[in-house]
Computed example of a mutant assay.
Amino acid sequence: MRQGEDLGRWVRSVRLGWNQLTTVQQWMCEQVLGIEPAIEDEKPKPRRTQADKWAMNYQAAKQFYEREGHLQVPRKHVERTVGQDQEERELKLGAWIGNQRSRAATLSPERVEQLSAIGMRWA
């Protein structure tokens, strides 16, 4: 901290936002301050959209249905899946299924159709 400014946070934001700096700002950061752009491993993963999250949960529901033959998922059930990025995830499938049922009226027709195709019980 210097005069109320968190310099570590500022340096991090400069390194991560390197491409938003002008050429002169980049030169000054490198030559005067010794700050270099962040490498790929340091950059945060992009945030998942709501559509991405819905698709992941749908795949978990499909996996559960293929294994169990129904979608009567206990509320506290956690489904383990492996994503396209080979990352293992634990999804709270029971809660998600319950939420989809309670939001049936506001779901898009496509999503209702997708869930119905894998045995979703709406009532």
Rank of each mutant, 00 (worst) to 15 (best):
R2H: 09
Q3Y: 15
Q3S: 14
Q3A: 10
D6L: 07
L7Y: 08
V11C: 11
V11Y: 08
R12Y: 10
S13H: 10
S13P: 00
S13F: 13
V14C: 12
L16Y: 15
W18D: 05
W18Y: 02
N19Y: 12
N19D: 15
N19T: 14
L21Y: 05
T23L: 15
Q25T: 04
C29E: 03
V32H: 10
V32R: 15
L33V: 05
I35H: 03
E36F: 14
A38Y: 01
A38H: 00
A38V: 00
I39E: 04
I39Y: 01
D41Y: 01
P44Q: 09
P44M: 11
P44T: 09
R47E: 13
R47S: 15
T49R: 06
T49M: 06
Q50K: 14
Q50R: 13
D52Y: 07
K53P: 02
K53T: 13
K53D: 04
W54D: 15
A55G: 07
A55W: 10
Y58G: 04
A61P: 01
A61M: 06
K62M: 11
Q63M: 00
Q63K: 01
E66Q: 03
R67Y: 03
R67I: 01
E68Q: 05
G69Q: 02
L71R: 03
Q72G: 10
V73Q: 05
H77C: 03
V78G: 02
E79G: 03
E79N: 02
R80F: 11
R80L: 08
T81Y: 04
T81M: 14
G83D: 12
G83P: 06
G83V: 02
Q84V: 05
Q86F: 06
E87Y: 04
E87T: 13
L91E: 10
G94V: 00
G94A: 05
G94N: 02
W96V: 04
I97E: 01
G98R: 06
G98I: 04
N99A: 08
R101G: 06
R101M: 05
R103V: 05
A104C: 09
A105Y: 07
T106V: 14
R111T: 01
R111V: 06
V112R: 15
E113K: 13
